[in-house]
Simulated scan of single mutants.
Amino acid sequence: MKKINWGILAAGRISSWFCTGLQTVSNANILAIGSRSQEKAEQFGDRFEIERRYGSYEELVNDPDIDVIYVGVPSRWHHEYTMLALRAGKNVVCEKPFSMNAKDTKEQITYAREHNLFLMEAMWTKCTPVYRTVMDWVGQGRIGEVRFFKADFFTPGKANPPHRLYNYEIGGGALLDLGVYPITYACSLLGHHPTEILSTADFAHTGVDINNSIILKYENGSYAAISSGFNVHQQNPAVIVGTKGKITIDHNFLCAESAQLRDLNNEIIQQVHYPFEKNGYEYEGMEATRCLQAGLKESPWIPLEHTQAVMEIMDTCRKQWGFAYTFEK
Rank of each mutant, 00 (worst) to 15 (best):
216 L>D: 02
70 Y>H: 09
8 I>T: 03
67 D>V: 06
268 I>D: 10
185 Y>G: 03
163 H>Q: 08
69 I>C: 10
14 I>T: 14
70 Y>S: 15
284 E>W: 04
194 P>C: 12
88 A>I: 07
29 N>V: 09
253 F>Q: 02
200 T>E: 05
314 M>T: 02
320 Q>I: 02
34 G>F: 00
72 G>W: 00
133 T>A: 13
130 V>D: 07
51 E>K: 15
262 R>G: 04
177 D>H: 09
142 R>D: 01
292 L>H: 04
268 I>H: 07
187 C>G: 11
227 S>T: 10
44 F>K: 06
311 M>D: 04
109 I>Y: 01
182 P>W: 00
36 R>C: 03
61 V>F: 02
150 K>T: 04
259 A>K: 09
148 F>R: 15
313 I>K: 11
50 I>D: 02
99 S>A: 15
56 S>R: 10
174 A>D: 03
253 F>L: 10
271 Q>V: 03
74 P>C: 09
256 A>G: 04
179 G>L: 12
157 G>H: 07
34 G>W: 01
150 K>G: 04
52 R>C: 07
179 G>N: 05
221 G>T: 13
308 Q>L: 15
73 V>E: 04
130 V>R: 09
296 L>S: 12
130 V>G: 12
108 Q>K: 11
171 G>F: 03
231 N>P: 01
91 N>A: 08
176 L>H: 09
201 A>E: 05
103 K>H: 06
96 K>S: 08
167 N>C: 12
96 K>D: 01
81 Y>T: 06
65 D>Y: 04
207 G>K: 13
195 T>P: 03
129 P>C: 06
70 Y>E: 11
184 T>A: 13
274 Y>R: 08
129 P>L: 06
306 H>E: 14
158 K>S: 14
74 P>Q: 12
148 F>L: 13
187 C>S: 13
218 Y>A: 12
120 M>G: 09
176 L>S: 10
229 G>D: 00
77 W>H: 09
241 V>P: 00
241 V>S: 12
234 Q>D: 14
176 L>Q: 12
138 V>N: 08
48 F>K: 07
219 E>H: 13
296 L>C: 12
266 N>R: 11
91 N>I: 03
75 S>W: 02
45 G>F: 00
138 V>A: 07
254 L>F: 06
38 Q>T: 13
176 L>G: 14
182 P>H: 02
114 E>L: 08
295 G>P: 10
297 K>L: 11
152 D>N: 15
188 S>G: 13
279 N>C: 13
105 T>N: 06
237 P>R: 07
164 R>I: 10
80 E>A: 15
303 P>M: 12
155 T>G: 11
281 Y>P: 07
95 E>Y: 07
66 I>C: 11
163 H>D: 13
224 A>D: 05
85 A>E: 04
206 T>W: 03
71 V>M: 07
129 P>I: 04
230 F>L: 05
250 D>G: 14
262 R>L: 10
154 F>T: 07
326 T>F: 11
122 A>C: 14
138 V>W: 01
31 L>T: 12
